[in-house]
């Protein structure tokens, strides 16, 4: 760890806390309909859509509304991709997307995963990016937030039949939280040089002539192959380059704020038009965690005890700090196999030192590792460095961060509802230890809540480990692994971890744009979202219907350091133990081989 890394962490933590506290209070106000101006603007919208703003929904009705809403979004994104050649705003004339890739991408953006098996600038028209992917960036984020708001209402209300109105909640969070924040962040990014234009791609002359090899193409339009089946290559050179353009800044703002993560360009925020300067880098990495952190304080406000929000924030913050310091330290150590070759990996005034493979020279180790940590802990999935090129243990941190269940800040909404599920399990464990009926925020935790919590916790490891096992057993899964051995296994494990936990980042190195991976990962993303969301909503309904218990001397406080430690222990034990054998086969073996 360098002095720069410690300073970056300190500034990041301070700015994040200072912004998320008032934002959390604001979100609580918006969701409780406390702002008269907002209500007056919303009223005509509800009248137009025939929505009764005061009509409460039970948990099942609320869930069905969300699922129908998301289902329509899925169909819209799928159709836009399949028809983009004949639709406007396609200056490059990009072809219609294949059925399996369209299916994967539609599920990916509808579930807030934003896994990308395609390259943005070579696959998607401006219209598909804006009307399909960009709109889903807002709506999938709104979906996560309204689900956690419904769960919080479950704790805050008592003897109630409803958990809110899904249409009203979706409108409020999109209109008053996501749109204004995205507008401000987009302007900041444009000011820093992130592109926002409808102009077609630019042909420019390069400073030097570049020589390279490319496959020879036969008369049938396919690459020629030699007797061994390898492609026949030819030498070529060019002094021209195509610069991809597009309305990127507006997409990137919501991509970060909504913990979506889907890049406008293929290399995501490692592209200078998507992340132009260290300042834009800071704005983007801050935006990743801002709303998930703010929701902790929204929780505290809505349940009427701000200390509860601070306790959850503290648990998340401590785990975030430890994992980020780990990622920074492992990457700063460098690669031991490069040292004998005379490569200088020490930090100096003119270089960041450490393992710089796959990292932007503009950002160095600290800004790359902080991003890697934030994007995987917060279920974002955008990258400014290539996680595949991290040292084995440095790469294990993002992998582990995803596998902990995306509850350390996590996705917008989904992170907090995941953490509250862990909190319920934590109070249950504490109840078993002291022999009392567990309760959380005045609600008795009974068999029904534990069953739903167990389902929510167990489904994702099943998807991740089951999917990985199938992928490494069948030929279709092994065929596109670029690196054999432990690293190749890590790539497959990362892909399923990312999809099942709705993260969306990729370890790269794995050719995932195949019918097998598009379908398998699509299933993992779909179930990873809705098979968790439904039990959470069921719990929200059950908790809202319960009576509130009075606080007595026997009530375990859930706002102090003891509960914070208990919560961290539960997350680590339940989250980590599921994956230890798989991690041992991947990054741990690779580390031992590298450092032998």
């Amino acid at each position: 760890m360098t002095a720069h890394a410690w300073m970056l962490l300190a500034v990041y933590g301070i700015v994040l806390t200072m912004l998320s506290v008032p934002l959390g209070r604001f979100i609580a106000g918006v969701m409780e309909g406390r702002f008269g101006f907002a209500r007056r603007v919303e009223a005509p919208l509800y009248r137009l859509c025939g929505v009764g703003a005061d009509a409460e929904m039970g948990w099942l009705q609320y869930t069905l509304a969300i699922m129908v809403f998301n289902g329509i979004g899925f169909l819209a994104v799928y159709a836009l991709q399949r028809l983009q050649l004949w639709l406007p705003l396609n200056p490059q004339g990009l072809a219609n997307v294949s059925p399996d890739s369209s299916l994967n991408t539609a599920i990916s953006f509808m579930t807030n995963t934003n896994w990308q098996g395609y390259g943005g600038e070579t696959t998607m028209s401006y219209l598909t990016q804006m009307l399909g992917l960009g709109v889903q960036n807002f709506l999938s984020a709104a979906t996560g937030i309204v689900v956690v708001i419904a769960l919080i209402r479950g704790f805050a209300r008592h003897s109630a039949a409803g958990v809110g109105n899904a249409w009203v909640d979706l409108t409020r969070v999109t209109l008053w939280v996501l749109l204004p924040l995205a507008f401000v962040v987009a302007l900041l990014l444009v000011q820093q040089g992130v592109v926002q234009t409808f102009e077609p791609y630019k042909e420019v002359q390069t400073l030097e002539t570049v020589k390279y090899q490319e496959p020879k193409i036969g008369p049938d339009g396919q690459p020629l192959k030699d007797a061994k089946g390898d492609p026949v290559m030819k030498d070529t050179s060019t002094d021209r380059q195509t610069l991809a353009m597009g309305p990127a800044a507006s997409q990137i703002a919501i991509k970060q704020l909504g913990t979506n993560g889907g890049g406008f360009f293929n290399v995501n925020s490692a592209h200078p038009y998507e992340n132009a300067t260290p300042w834009s880098n800071f704005v983007e990495v801050l935006s990743i965690v801002l709303i998930p952190a703010a929701l902790c304080f929204t929780f505290g406000h809505m349940v009427g005890d701000r200390r509860q929000g601070w306790a959850v924030f503290a648990a998340m913050g401590l785990m975030f700090l430890v994992l980020t310091v780990g990622a920074m330290s492992f990457e700063q150590q460098g690669n031991p196999q490069l040292a004998p070759l005379g490569v200088d990996q020490a930090e100096r005034a003119a270089q960041a030192g450490g393992n710089m493979e796959g990292k932007e020279a503009r950002y160095g180790i600290a800004d790359s590792a902080l991003w890697a940590s934030a994007t995987t802990l917060a279920s974002n999935g955008s990258v400014n460095s290539m996680h595949d090129s991290y040292t084995p243990l440095g790469g294990m941190i993002p992998l582990l961060s995803i596998q902990l269940g995306e509850v350390i800040f996590g996705g917008v909404g989904s992170g907090l509802y995941g953490m509250l599920v862990f909190a319920i399990i934590a109070v249950f464990i504490a109840g078993l230890m002291i022999g009392r009926t567990p309760e959380y925020l005045g609600k008795k935790i009974e068999a029904y809540e534990m069953k739903m919590s167990s389902l929510a916790i167990l489904i994702v490891p099943l998807l991740v480990l089951g999917g990985t096992a199938i992928a490494v057993m069948v030929d279709a899964g092994r065929a596109t692994i670029a690196n054999p051995g432990a690293h190749g296994f890590s790539e497959v494990l990362y892909a399923f971890s990312s999809a099942g936990n709705n993260n969306g980042s990729a370890f790269a190195g794995l050719g995932a744009n195949t019918p097998f991976y598009n379908t398998m990962l699509g299933i993992a993303m779909w179930l990873g979202r809705f098979a968790v969301l439904i039990p959470v909503m069921a719990m929200a309904g059950s908790l809202a219907a319960k009576k509130r218990l009075a606080v007595t001397s026997g009530t375990m406080p859930t706002h102090g350091p003891l509960f914070v430690l208990l919560l961290i222990g539960t997350v680590l034990l339940v989250g980590l133990l599921n994956y230890v054998p798989a991690l041992a086969l991947g990054p741990v073996v690779e580390h031992l081989v590298l450092w032998k």
Binding site: K451, S454, L455, L462, M473, V474
Partner: peptide, 30 residues
């Protein structure tokens, strides 16, 4: 895909169904 993979898959799926059933309705297994 060998017969061992197939057998392993059947056992794993069977165990999964049993454990989920035991989670949702433990009283039926007492």
């Amino acid at each position: 895909m060998t017969w061992m993979y197939a057998l392993g898959s059947v056992v794993a799926v069977g165990l999964l169904i049993y454990l989920v059933a035991a989670l949702l309705a433990p009283e039926k297994f007492s």
